[in-house]
Amino acid sequence: MFWNVTQSLMEGFGKTLEIFALTLLFALPLGLVIAFGSMSKWKPLKLVSKGLVWVIRGTPLMLQLIVIFYGPGLIGSWASQLESTNPLIQWLATWECFDRFTAVIVSFVINYACYFSEIYRGGIESIPKGQYEAGQVLGMTKSQTFFKVVLLQVIKRIIPPMSNEIITLVKDTSLARTISVYEVIWNSEIFIRTDGLLWPLFYTGLFYLIFNGLLTVVFGRIEKKLSYFKA
């Protein structure tokens, strides 16, 4: 039995890790784009970025999952019923549902990119103006100043809030089951229903604990590595 449970949970946790890794892969850079958007001097871009962050942070991830999974398909069928010749409507009529896993990744990426963007923004705006000014009077370009001077200081400052958010992401992956993407908790729940076993749930908790423990160690290492300077 133990072996059966282990195998099933490993499978489920594989899905969890997949969601985790893909979300990070896309949300980390997308967050930077949104952060620059919300710091932009160009009002419309700033407004759109801030509006997006407001909506995404202001509504539950579970709701976003459902909307992103069902939304495109519903819009598609509504548009095709109109039988319009308008090219926009025709284009909308081609919309279909994402497959379940893609819908999970899209929702998670958008959601986490918004949270990351606020952390990035906080980090970037906390760097004293004098650093930029020093770069400028030393004849460095704006991008040289950002990449060679500011960036590492930003990274140092955002490591603690980022590690917080990333550990939350590990646990949030369990929301994928809302749209029937089966991850580790779903798999362990099956044992309650079919075999009346409770311990696989605690076993599942152990999976999370160990993985988050690993992440904590990794972030601790990075923090230590950057502790050689004060910023």
Partner: peptide, 14 residues
């Protein structure tokens, strides 16, 4: 052509 020394030094900490 001109250099500037700041009141707050503004050295690059890293």
């Amino acid at each position: 052509k001109i250099g500037l020394v700041f009141q707050q030094f503004n050295l690059f900490p890293q």
